[in-house]
Design a protein around this nucleic acid. Structure first.
Lengths: 334, 334
DNA sequence: ACATTAAATGTAAGCGCTTACATTTATAAC
DNA sequence: GTTATAAATGTAAGCGCTTACATTTAATGT
């Protein structure tokens, strides 16, 4: 691999001049620019961005930490982010934290030591304190799907209380009063919030929240299945089941069918996230829209604006959930 | 951020010694190792891996180029890869090529200039020649889902001809003789192969392949929808539709329903890939399994073995498709 | 006690770039 | 034709590490 030195040699100029034409920075005469360019193509020269990075202290790369690389939720998020950066020729280094504190921390350390200019973090297990401490460091970062009071300007979040509220309210409007709920793991803030919104809607309808109708899942499909099973066997009768995300709803539906329960006639089901496949399952799942791709793009814009000082459309941190009505919830006949 | 210099100062040793304890390489006495470690934690020292990279000419990171970051196909692949590398504390830099020649090429250049020690490439648009040329360079790479004769030992592929064959054979066994086919874009090798397998099965049943029953899609859901529409309006009657992947099958199914066609009673449908949501749609889709996650792990193993000289389980390049029978194909009554 | 050898540590030259500063060359003003 | 000024180019230091080689220190044998 040719180095800048060889190019300068061939072109008959100094290192600095070659560097200048690369970064088409300063004043270089057309003639020399031409010479240098020619030499570069002749040698098939490709700048070594590691070296650039070290010298300039700017890597043109941003770190992206997500919980998982697969699944209908993170895909669109990553994609939104990559697209935004690609347009500005920034590059993304990716890591998965697997909702595990140590792994998340490790990943952050790596991304920082890797000279990322900025970070986009979707972390779940790491403590607020760690992040607040991190914010005092020199690598700027933005948080997706997590709210920390002290860091509020860099938290891109969905109003999950409202989402939980919307889901429950819709089901209540259809006349249901016996509503089971499969939550996410309640140590996660979003799981808490969704449940809080749920309770709020119940309260508005003067309904008490019955703990027996609650099952705590883990946002994965299987826990929807076991959750349904548990509720079916142990809880009082219910005519509707609200799940804190679509994947658990999917699991619950599959299991309900195994119990020969007709959907949606005998049981209404509500999801959350509006993951892409919800409209393909049967019955098509009513759910709450989570504009994750847009939020990913917004996170990228945050970095573009705060780190690279590019002009972007105005930054927005709070996103609104939206009710998506399909066919999995039936009205109770009066 | 503290540098190695400050650590050496604090510990009262030379740069080299600090470097040695970092890479716990050479002979360092326990006493000095202790001193240095203490100094490191005291300063909160974190090695700058950019600098390490430049000096050692090894970045401990591998580049991963996929067509898209989202979708049920790439997610499991990326995940398999990340997991394998994480265990060996290698890191992955990701890029999306979007099936576009220029973007794929750009991405490869970036990954190389970024000093990736090795590359895992899922490319579609770039030419064989380019890749063959690339293989002469110093950055080793492995190809997923693409076969090039000259590079055969580094091509991790599925036997797509066989997959196409299995799908068609199964449908034929159910008594169908009028079978429509929605292919992938035929400039892609895998699309060609699947179709070839399809034709081969037809031939075994002494059936001619009818061009009118073929629609060329692009592997995306929408093209399944328009494909169905086209076939429904222009093609002769058919009792089964085989799609070259699950997403097109999904699109076709949705549209078929809009035409009030009962599935699977009036039309049998067959997919390909066994993407995770196929079992949730209705009717659950019969399809061909594509062990993409395993193939991702294998690609990672290839790099681990060929680049980092780690011992891995034996490398395998050819993977076998498998018929997955669910409920979307019905036997024709005799 | 002294040579011989091995272990521990230090020295300094890069890795391929960027960039402040110095120097040269061209342009303009008189 | 001089200067003054701006534009173009060159020089060299340094980014934070690794590593070949040189040097010092400790361990061993006689």
């Amino acid at each position: 691999m040719a180095t800048i030195y060889e190019v300068s040699k061939l072109a008959g100029v100094s290192l600095a001049t070659v560097s200048r034409v690369m970064n088409n920075n300063a004043n270089v005469s057309d003639a020399t620019r031409e010479k240098v360019t020619r030499a570069m193509t002749e040698l098939g020269y490709r700048p070594n961005s590691i070296a650039q990075s070290l010298a300039s202290n700017c890597s043109n790369s941003v770190g992206l930490l997500v919980s998982e690389l697969q699944g209908p939720f993170y895909g669109p998020m990553m994609s939104g982010i990559e697209t935004a950066f690609r347009k500005q020729s920034k590059h993304v280094i990716i890591a998965a934290g697997h909702s595990d504190e140590e792994r998340e921390q490790q990943a952050i350390e790596f991304l920082i030591s890797r000279n990322c200019d900025g970070l986009i973090l979707h972390v779940e297990a790491i403590s607020d304190d760690y992040l607040i401490e991190l914010s005092k460091g020199k690598t700027p970062f933005v948080l997706i799907n997590r709210y920390i009071e002290e860091l509020s300007s860099r938290c891109i979040i969905l109003d999950n209380v409202k989402g939980g509220y919307l889901a429950a309210k819709y089901v209540l409007e259809q006349g249901h009063t016996d509503i089971a709920y499969i939550s996410g793991p309640l140590w996660k803030k979003d799981a808490q919030d969704r449940l809080a919104g749920h309770k709020q809607a119940l309260a508005e309808y003067n309904l008490n929240f019955n703990e027996q109708l609650l099952y705590q899942g883990d946002f994965m499909e299987d826990s929807g299945a076991t959750g349904f099973q548990h509720l079916h066997n142990n809880a009082p009768q219910f005519t509707a089941l609200i799940c804190a995300n679509d994947e658990m709803a999917t699991g619950a539906m599959a299991t309900a069918r195994e119990y020969k329960i007709k959907l949606p006639e005998q049981l209404s089901i509500m999801g959350y996230d509006n993951v892409f496949f919800t409209r393909h399952i049967s019955p098509p799942l009513s759910t709450i829209n989570y504009p994750i791709s847009a939020m990913g793009r917004m996170a990228a814009d945050w970095v573009l604006s705060n780190v690279y000082h590019k002009n972007t459309s105005p930054l927005q941190t709070l996103f609104e959930p939206e009710l998506i009505i399909r066919q999995s919830v039936l009205a109770i006949p009066q």
